[in-house]
């Protein structure tokens, strides 16, 4: 399952690669990384059909995660649409409501609980198959 992680913090890559080292090693998940909303859109334009799940930070300079979400929902309505999970350090109700309104599938707060995330991803994978 291909997952695109969008966050302006570079270290997120190291973190995900270590957290999911086993899953990556045995080919369960494959991760790509983008460091801004714009970069993420570029990546999607090239690899749209491959990406199953997008994990995006909301708070980024330039295009925000919510804008990215809007673009994704506009540009890729074709079934099956990619799953989008929003991650934010501000766990406020406003952002949460806005994310769901724009079509987010899930809403996570930082620091990310990787155990819970793994469980969610595993559930998604079984659902896919």
């Amino acid at each position: 399952m291909k997952i695109l992680v969008v966050d302006d913090e570079m270290d997120v890559r190291t973190l995900f690669e270590q957290r999911f080292r086993r899953e990556i090693r045995n080919g369960q998940f494959s991760f790509s990384f983008a460091y801004s909303g714009e970069e993420a859109l570029d990546y999607l334009h090239a690899h749209a059909s491959e990406v199953v799940l997008i994990l995006s930070d909301i708070n980024m300079p330039g295009m925000s995660g919510l804008e990215l979400l809007r673009h994704i929902r506009e540009e890729y309505p074709a079934p099956p649409p990619p799953q989008v999970m929003m991650i934010t350090a501000y766990g406020d109700q406003d952002s949460h409501d806005q994310a769901l309104r724009l079509g987010a599938d899930d809403f996570l707060t930082k620091p990310v609980d990787f155990v819970a995330l793994k469980a969610k991803l595993a559930a998604m994978e079984t659902h896919e198959n």
């Binding site: 913090e9 990310v112 990787f114």
Partner: peptide, 21 residues
């Protein structure tokens, strides 16, 4: 708060993942 929260998240996450390693 946000600026402190971010690095603290990394500290937590990297500590966790290091424990796993």
């Amino acid at each position: 708060a946000h600026e402190i929260q971010n690095p603290l998240n990394f500290v937590t996450n990297f500590s966790d993942v290091s424990a796993e390693l």
